[in-house]
């Protein structure tokens, strides 16, 4: 029976596991400018370059900040929609679910195209602002961190809405009825019961979105127009444009470490929560 895992496992080994280890290996190789292939000896040069050059510290800091900001805004925006959807029934629910997952399945390229058009100097948002006489000259949204945050929040909203909706749906109705029976009004029931019980889903969504923002490439690349660099764009640039493989690999490893810290912190928190509940 276990043998049935073999073909898929073998494919994963070659296509997934090995490339990550090869990347780790490459991060320790020496890069000589002008030479496409890095070589021996092993060195920590790439990592040192990363830590010495303050530019990259700024990039990491910016990525962390933008990701945090996006995750927070995403949470705040997702909650009302998730709440509404948790109460929806029948056809309305189905339509809402389809609409919420639509951006996910149609792909990040379609989303980014749309934002490009909306936020461009000649784009929709500027036209609306001009028509309302709020501004005279167009605002340059593209190429700013704000544009990236807008793009990230929108891209990952479904990943936040669905977990929150799911956890809200699981709260037993009779718990709320008991609260009402004991004298709690609507607001009290929400803040004292519903919201605390939903925090699990909020947390799960937050971690998911935060990690996805840290790892993102397409949205910052298009909406940042090359002017705003995040970890993802630096990795791409170093690999595909500057051909500094070891450095690109080193940054990738650092990104993985950040995600690992996030994962460990989350599971520790979960374990502590489980221990408290027991």
């Amino acid at each position: 029976m276990n043998m049935l895992l073999l073909p898929l496992a073998a494919l994963f080994f070659v296509m997934f596991i090995i490339p990550f280890f090869y990347l780790l290996y490459t991060s320790f190789l020496t890069y000589t400018s002008g030479q496409v292939s890095p070589g021996m000896p092993f060195t920590l040069g790439s990592y040192l370059k990363f830590f010495r050059d303050s530019y990259y510290a700024v990039v990491i800091g910016r990525t962390l900040w933008l990701s945090l900001l996006s995750a927070v805004i995403c949470t705040i925006m997702a909650y009302p929609l998730a709440f509404f959807m948790a109460r929806a029934q029948g056809y309305l629910k189905t339509i809402l679910l389809v609409l919420v997952t639509l951006p996910l399945i149609s792909g990040v390229v379609v989303q980014t195209m749309g934002w490009y058009g909306l936020l461009a100097a000649y784009g929709t948002v500027n036209n609306i602002l001009k028509a309302l006489h709020i501004i005279h000259d167009p605002i340059q949204f593209l190429g700013t961190s704000s544009a990236i945050v807008i793009g990230l929040v929108q891209s990952f909203l479904p990943y936040m809405v669905l977990p929150i909706m799911n956890i809200l749906q699981v709260i037993p109705k009779n718990v709320l009825e008991a609260a009402e029976n004991l004298g709690a009004n609507g607001a009290q029931r929400f803040f004292r019961i519903t919201f605390p019980l939903s925090l699990g889903g909020v947390g799960a969504g937050f971690v998911l979105v935060f990690g996805a923002c840290l790892s993102s490439y397409t949205t910052p690349s298009i909406l940042g127009s090359g002017k705003v660099q995040v970890i993802g764009t630096v990795v791409y640039q170093q690999a595909m444009q500057l051909f500094n493989w070891p450095f690109s690999a080193a940054i990738s490893m650092i990104l993985l470490v950040l995600l690992l810290i996030l994962a460990v912190a989350t599971s520790l928190k979960a374990k502590r929560k489980a221990a408290n509940a027991a």
């Binding site: 490339p19 990550f20 090869y22 990347l23 790892s215 993802g232 990795v235 690999a239 990104l255 993985l256």
Partner: peptide, 11 residues
């Protein structure tokens, strides 16, 4: 991250 996987495979 897809970007990391992508570079890994490329290399």
């Amino acid at each position: 991250p897809a970007i990391v996987w992508g570079v890994g495979m490329l290399l």
